[in-house]
Computed example of a mutant assay.
Amino acid sequence: MTDPGESGPLGAGVGESDSGTVASDDGAAGDAAMEPAAVAELAERIADNVEAVIVGKREAVEHVVVTLLARGHLLVEDVPGVGKTTLAKAVARSIDGSFKRVQFTPDLLPSDVTGVNVFDQRTDEFEFQPGPVFANVVLGDEINRAPPKTQSALLEAMEERQVTTDGETRRLPDPFCVIATQNDVEPGQTYDLPVAEVDRFTKKIRLGYPDTDEEAEIIGRMAGDHPVESVEPVAAIDDVRRARATVGAIEATEELRRYVARLAVHTRRNARLGVSPRGSLALLRASQARAALDGRGYVIPDDVQTEAPTVFAHRIRSDSGGADGAEIVADALDRVPVE
């Protein structure tokens, strides 16, 4: 595979349009980008700030930062009480962004998420009351407790960064990132997420239990006020927009893009449902963000291999009794050559 070198042009990356022009989330091209080294420094500041309240989870925190910079969304599947909500709050506070939380329950309605038009008798007109989805960071807590109809209320928001109610479309804030948690210990009281929704999550991760020393540190920090309330911003929303513009322009050669595509094809040949083209694009964008975290202006195969397990595995549905998604991704990384 050709190595573009340190001087590779940033303009050869993957933007929002087919023409190669780098576009921001709101469709505007040419946002004032940072140098990759500045993005790396910004990402480190955010990760360090989040780690002040999330003890011993540096890798998980970096996955969140990568997702944010890759213009994606994150699904966190784990047991209760390991810090999923704290993680989302800390990220929002670190970038000085708005934060809203939605507690998904069996009786939650789609309009409880997206918003609803309410008739105002004083003006004799309908007025739109925005739902909690109108925030920079939206926490969907225990998303699999709500029925599929309510879960699907997020589909348009996650893919198109907009909400349509009563025929009127409204843009969501920029940046917009959904961090959803999924309960995996009470399957009898939850619903499976629709495949179309799962595919819209850039990454799926687990936080896991802390070890003894980490848990002792957590207990000490939580003895008084919750430390997340004292988290101060270390970046501005505009910094995140500029960093995203840089990440979208990180160079990915044709050979690198074909490597991503071959990995996706391998999953389709070895599972009932393999990775979609949306998943391939998500992997490339996550790889661009990973390259930026290292201060590089170009993607290398190591970036792809680092990101593939958390980007690909949750999109795969294997035959009953067969290998799970993680095993299929591991097999793809082992068998598909880097050319």
Rank of each mutant, 00 (worst) to 15 (best):
P4H: 08
G11Y: 10
E16A: 14
D18P: 06
G20R: 04
T21Q: 14
D26K: 01
G27S: 09
D31K: 09
M34L: 15
E35D: 11
A38N: 10
A38Y: 07
I46N: 13
I46E: 14
I46D: 13
V50Q: 05
E51W: 03
V53A: 10
I54N: 03
I54A: 10
I54V: 15
E59Y: 12
V61Q: 14
T67H: 02
L69Q: 05
A70R: 06
R71G: 08
L75G: 09
V76I: 15
V79D: 02
V79T: 08
V79H: 01
K84T: 07
T86V: 15
A90E: 01
V91R: 03
V91C: 04
S98I: 04
K100F: 05
R101Q: 01
P106Y: 05
P110W: 11
S111Q: 07
V116H: 13
V116A: 14
V116G: 00
F119P: 01
T123R: 08
T123V: 04
D124R: 14
F126C: 05
E127Q: 14
Q129G: 07
P130K: 09
P132W: 11
P132I: 11
P132F: 12
F134Q: 02
V138W: 09
L139V: 05
G140N: 12
G140T: 00
E142A: 11
I143R: 08
T150L: 04
Q151L: 06
A153N: 06
L155Y: 04
M158V: 05
M158W: 06
E159N: 15
Q162E: 15
T164D: 12
T164L: 06
T165L: 08
G167N: 08
E168A: 13
T169K: 07
P173H: 02
D174I: 01
C177S: 10
V178E: 12
I179K: 08
T181N: 04
N183D: 09
V185P: 00
G188D: 15
Q189K: 11
T190P: 03
P194D: 03
P194Y: 07
T202R: 15
K204C: 10
R221N: 05
H226M: 02
V231T: 09
V234C: 00
R242T: 03
A243C: 05
A249C: 03
A249L: 07
A249I: 10
T253G: 09
T253K: 06
L256P: 02
R258P: 00
R262S: 14
A264T: 10
V265L: 12
T267Y: 12
R272P: 11
R272E: 15
P277D: 10
R278W: 11
G279C: 12
S280H: 02
A286L: 10
S287R: 00
A289L: 03
R290P: 01
D294R: 13
G295P: 08
G295M: 10
R296I: 04
R296T: 09
Y298C: 05
I300P: 00
D302G: 07
T306Y: 03
A308N: 03
I316V: 12
R317C: 04
S318I: 00
S318F: 01
S320N: 04
G325L: 10
G325A: 11
E327G: 08
L333K: 05
V336S: 01
